[in-house]
Design a binder for these strands. Structure first.
Lengths: 206, 206
DNA sequence: GTTTAATTTAAACATTTGTTTAATTTTGCA
DNA sequence: TGCAAAATTAAACAAATGTTTAAATTAAAC
């Protein structure tokens, strides 16, 4: 599956609109006018609106694959690996928020669960890497708590997505004046909070 | 704002459909046929589809108000308060998942940010209660870490919503065979994990 | 029991939807 | 240059959308 420049342009714009307004809330004419093309070009290039959504997932997901293995192979402590894992995780998601928003809203809606198997496979792969770090931590006696590793991605992605989806409200509460301040908060404080809580989960029994 | 039995029936069905298929993905005819009524009844009772969405939010939110004050007033330690707060929070959300799904998808979509102020007000109120518990914990010297309390709701709601929105995947990974097992996991293990991580955030510096 | 109001219905409405058609323009190549 | 393929266009298409209408039915009030 390779797309030409024109297709990629359409994919980029459709991705933004789908993330912002939802799949059903975005018409092909919306996309066409924003992309300065004729409506027919969408059918011409992708076959249908549904297949355009597929194209977005395929194209964007291939460029988003998490390289957690590189974190795993580093010569650092399990605790540091957790830190780096989370920082890397969030950095990746943050630079592809639109894609994740589409995945979490459209794919969730029971109508379109076609791509579920593929996504599920990636999730399982990522989980295996996290599990490896957790196992290592236990082996070294650093991690004390027996937890379900499966909840860690939920904590990272869930917390992060909720936070950015409520950007306006968070900026209000935390008195962040502009987008730069918000970005800075996410990349520093928010990441630290998530790191802290995941480590707290692994290290301490209360 | 009070609704008669017929209106409430429509509200209940529309809530389920909006949560499952999205607002734009659900037609008024969908709602009408599921509710065994004529399409015109929606306009007759609510004025429009948009106002039906409003009605859902108004009606369901009034019955969902978190009674965090009761937790705050209890004669227990701040740590226990955090536990109870989280357990209560999740219990409430879980019994109103559909409403929260609508809020987090539809309200997020930039088209409809009308009800934002009202929701924002409730969020701020809840946050104030959490802040009171955190302050108390610090005063007693139990909590050691200076954190932004504002991220706690993100952790609770975000983690929880992500988990239940990926129900299928989670059941697969955690080998939960049926809905009962899933519910049981959410109400026990998941709640405990979230409690543990929030407390870890407050108690320990790593 | 008659009258008035409230409810319910089927049909029609004007738009908007995704998609296709057929003609036109542009491009790539011999 | 000439020509075939690809790209682009405006228009039309049927189906689905939210909403309204006007008639029919039911309920309530007197």
């Amino acid at each position: 599956m390779d797309f030409n420049d024109k297709q990629i342009e359409i994919i980029d714009i459709a991705e933004q609109l789908f993330a912002l307004q939802g799949y059903d809330g975005t018409s092909v004419r919306d996309i066409a006018s924003k992309a300065n093309i004729n409506v027919a070009m969408i059918s011409y290039y992708f076959g249908s609106k549904e297949k355009l959504l597929e194209a977005i997932l395929i194209y964007k997901m291939s460029g988003t694959k998490l390289e957690l293995k590189s974190v795993l192979d580093k010569n650092i402590s399990p605790l540091q690996k957790i830190d780096e894992l989370i920082a890397y995780y969030i950095k990746k998601i943050y630079s592809n928020v639109a894609l994740y928003q589409i995945m979490h809203t459209e794919i969730m809606h029971k109508k379109r669960e076609a791509h579920m198997p593929e996504i599920s496979k990636i999730k399982k792969q990522n989980l295996a890497y996290i599990q490896a770090i957790v196992d290592e931590g236990f082996l070294q006696g650093v991690f004390k708590n027996k937890i379900d590793t499966a909840v860690i991605p939920s904590m990272i992605i869930g917390t992060f997505m909720y936070f950015v989806n409520n950007k306006h409200h968070m900026m209000d509460i935390l008195q962040l004046q502009n987008d730069t301040a918000f970005n800075h908060y996410v990349e520093n404080q928010l990441v630290q909070h998530i790191q802290q809580s995941v480590k707290g989960l692994l290290l301490y029994t209360t």
